[in-house]
Design a binder for these strands. Sequence first.
DNA 1: GATGAATGAGTTTTCATTCAT
DNA 2: CATGAATGAAAACTCATTCAT
Lengths: 213, 213, 213, 213
Amino acid sequence: MTDPTPTDAVADEPKLTKKQRAILEAALDVFSERGFARTATSEIARRASVAEGTIFRTWRTKKDLLIALVTPVILKLVVPYFIKEVQGVAEDADADLPTFVRSLYRNRVEHVVKRHPRAVRILVQEIAFHPEIQELLRDQAMDQLVPHLLDAIGRYQAAGVIAEMPREAALRLLVVNFAGMLVSGYFAPPDKDVDQEVELDRTVDFVVKGLSA
Amino acid sequence: MTDPTPTDAVADEPKLTKKQRAILEAALDVFSERGFARTATSEIARRASVAEGTIFRTWRTKKDLLIALVTPVILKLVVPYFIKEVQGVAEDADADLPTFVRSLYRNRVEHVVKRHPRAVRILVQEIAFHPEIQELLRDQAMDQLVPHLLDAIGRYQAAGVIAEMPREAALRLLVVNFAGMLVSGYFAPPDKDVDQEVELDRTVDFVVKGLSA
Amino acid sequence: MTDPTPTDAVADEPKLTKKQRAILEAALDVFSERGFARTATSEIARRASVAEGTIFRTWRTKKDLLIALVTPVILKLVVPYFIKEVQGVAEDADADLPTFVRSLYRNRVEHVVKRHPRAVRILVQEIAFHPEIQELLRDQAMDQLVPHLLDAIGRYQAAGVIAEMPREAALRLLVVNFAGMLVSGYFAPPDKDVDQEVELDRTVDFVVKGLSA
Amino acid sequence: MTDPTPTDAVADEPKLTKKQRAILEAALDVFSERGFARTATSEIARRASVAEGTIFRTWRTKKDLLIALVTPVILKLVVPYFIKEVQGVAEDADADLPTFVRSLYRNRVEHVVKRHPRAVRILVQEIAFHPEIQELLRDQAMDQLVPHLLDAIGRYQAAGVIAEMPREAALRLLVVNFAGMLVSGYFAPPDKDVDQEVELDRTVDFVVKGLSA
DNA sequence: GATGAATGAGTTTTCATTCAT
DNA sequence: CATGAATGAAAACTCATTCAT
């Protein structure tokens, strides 16, 4: 909405020179295309039209560059839009499950995945190999987002809308189907929004029915 | 059940010397731990207690070794046990959806994922970067498995057991939740089978309800 | 005695801005700690709280900075206090050897080594690799100090106080034991002046006896 | 005497290929000429007529190469010939001080410094900057050689041959003048053995007189 | 004068692959 | 078949120096 060109928000970062921004932008491209380990810093420099040494003035190692790309996405994945949703549900006891799930999914998709598709891809690919990133995600996402979602699930179970099962199990199903929606986006060519809208509806419908008591 | 030591079936391969087997076994370990691109062939040689050059007598390049690891899993993912299931359904029109989904999931889990966990992990990580593997998966899995599954889905829709939606959409939901089950296994510590059994039941239940008309 | 804070006399240099002084001071630290070749100019800038480029406004190269540090010490090592001593001996034929050696050692120690310990250390470490510095030392020290000392030794030999041997050999023994005194100061912890005083006496005694006829 | 070509005993090392030996030999040259930090591994490779990567197959880092050069010298500096000397003195209470000092100096010179001049030079230059080497020298030399020498000094003091002073002070004078002898060898061109023989005699004479009661 | 971003040549190190033994 | 020393191309990173602001 604010940003009409859905792009990885390299532009967000403050106090970066043009060249530094170009480096981030290039790294985003190459890391997501070829993977972190397969990418040479010389390639990044080439694409950013920058001397190779320039990269290392700002980021001391190649890995620092990776983390600089991935950290803002992790933060955005969780923090800003989240509060409203769950609080909305918390305050409005009537908010029904489909609305909750749809707004949860849609916000993540619109604010994170559509804007930072390359960074999300890098995150998914590299998280298995970088303890620092795992930690970051755990600290940020797990300790912030997860408790709130578990609470919400608990409330829906109390209201008889979600079937009896460990709340963690329900959360897993919720998350997996969200991830599946995204991943299918990677495989399918990035065509019309219509499709994605329909896909969103269908997935929400599926999840709500699947969880129902 | 059949195989008491659930291990990646390096042993299955015929006509391999001890050293070759050791190399495959070591590569399986290291590739799955550190990723293909991050793994040095010298490390594989070290773990296999083999000279560095020995690897290249059997596999001309490092990539050949990767493909040698991943190919059998792709084949096993699809071919042998599959036929019965879907044919069973095909012949027995009464076979209900829960039974179908459960047997589908369970077979995959037991015959592929439990036996070849490292190879599956490598496959998931590397498929994005290796056209050869993508092609292999497409040729084998997609052209074999997918049509059968789409047929089955179509039959269930005709019988009113699965809601109206593109069969591909239903397939995606089916697959994503299967994958989600596995992935959660990677994160959670590999504890008791009971849990996994319960998880399987729950997932099957969820999927069946979610797909229901 | 004259200078209560025994420090490398960066402060002596005239016409230097605060920043320039800070740079010299920082370079003195780092060069003596890590050696010239191992020291990055950026590290000097950091320690001097100065921009990286600032160093090169005053000294065109890193090597110029080294020479700027080392030159004054070389000059002080020789010129100012020396005249009196040897001239005293020259005029006062009665001056005995112990007094001569003691005053020679003490002056060097007090006026050079105590005040410029880091610069002396740098000089010792780097002289082997920089022809410019060797030349400087030869021009200044060798051509000034050495002839005077050889003369004095000759006089003591004529007076029968120093044994027959080439004057250069006697000079070497004199210098080596002076250097040894200093070097042992580097190894031992820098404790009380008393010790050093005793060490001085002992070394003088040793040298005088050793040289005696 | 035993070894007609006084060379750094790279040849001593067992189980090294020709190329590995060439690398050590080249490193010995370049390190001693230009200093460790100023030497590029590419230069070593060039002089050894070897690919740069070859260096790192045997020594994991440039520093490992340095230590490989310096370690044997440290060991030889202390261990093998030492026993006889001091034990000779221990058993033969009549052994006079000049004989002891001369044999001590001569053995070190002949077995270490003449054979490993470049390695000794490297050792002297680099020891200040490498804790590993300091430790090695402390462990080997200090804990082995020093106590024995202090004992010997004590005995000579008891016999009234060495003046009263802390035994450590006498040791320092002994060592410093030994080192001075060597160092002067570095400055003077390496000419005839005769000179060095005379120099040795003179230094021994000087030290013995200097230490005398 | 001062700054610090930028450079690019150079440095150490890695590693898949080859090949003589 | 197996070995492991050797290669060389490429990788990540360093750093003295320049120059626009």
